[in-house]
Simulated scan of single mutants.
Amino acid sequence: MRTLLNVIWLLFSGLWLAMGYAVAGIICFILIVTIPFGIASFRIALFTLWPFGNRVVRRADAGAGSCLGNAIWVVVAGWWLALGHLFTGIALCVTIIGIPFGIANFKLIPVSLLPLGREIVPAGDPRSFHVE
């Protein structure tokens, strides 16, 4: 079932959203100082391509650096990536079949706004029981 959901997700929103994260990552790599943000952006792009069966959890070793980095990320790229998830989620919720995918988009908004200090783990991983 996860595979079917992921394939449908990929066709209707995953590919386009992942391209948005990839563009953000490329821009972050070009600016050199923001390379850690680019790494986070590419990590989330992969998650956005195939989200069902994975979860986002808070990293135990995240500290003040992640908090400061997230504040910068929101200003640089997070707000427009979150808007992409919001608008895509609303568009998908128009149809009954699209509602689960719209909800999945809404669940991706927090990680698009605050990606640092987060980790993507398989749903069966023991760390995935402490989902945000």
Rank of each mutant, 00 (worst) to 15 (best):
residue 76 V to C: 09
residue 117 G to W: 15
residue 81 L to P: 12
residue 16 W to C: 12
residue 114 L to M: 14
residue 80 W to Y: 11
residue 113 L to C: 09
residue 101 F to D: 03
residue 30 I to P: 00
residue 64 A to M: 07
residue 11 L to M: 07
residue 71 A to F: 11
residue 11 L to D: 05
residue 25 G to A: 14
residue 131 V to H: 14
residue 68 L to E: 00
residue 128 S to A: 15
residue 17 L to F: 03
residue 88 T to H: 00
residue 78 G to F: 05
residue 85 H to A: 04
residue 119 E to W: 08
residue 48 T to I: 13
residue 10 L to Y: 02
residue 93 C to V: 01
residue 95 T to N: 12
residue 80 W to P: 03
residue 20 G to E: 06
residue 66 S to W: 04
residue 111 V to L: 13
residue 95 T to F: 14
residue 26 I to N: 00
residue 6 N to L: 09
residue 54 N to Q: 10
residue 122 P to G: 04
residue 51 P to W: 00
residue 13 S to T: 02
residue 61 D to V: 04
residue 59 R to W: 10
residue 83 L to R: 11
residue 89 G to C: 07
residue 14 G to M: 11
residue 24 A to W: 03
residue 117 G to V: 12
residue 38 G to H: 01
residue 20 G to W: 06
residue 51 P to R: 01
residue 46 L to N: 14
residue 8 I to G: 08
residue 13 S to W: 10
residue 129 F to S: 13
residue 7 V to M: 09
residue 21 Y to Q: 01
residue 67 C to P: 00
residue 66 S to G: 10
residue 29 F to R: 01
residue 19 M to H: 03
residue 26 I to A: 06
residue 47 F to Y: 15
residue 13 S to E: 11
residue 7 V to G: 08
residue 129 F to T: 15
residue 1 M to N: 00
residue 121 V to Y: 08
residue 93 C to K: 00
residue 104 A to H: 08
residue 130 H to G: 04
residue 56 V to E: 10
residue 34 T to D: 08
residue 39 I to W: 15
residue 110 P to Q: 02
residue 87 F to L: 15
residue 16 W to Q: 13
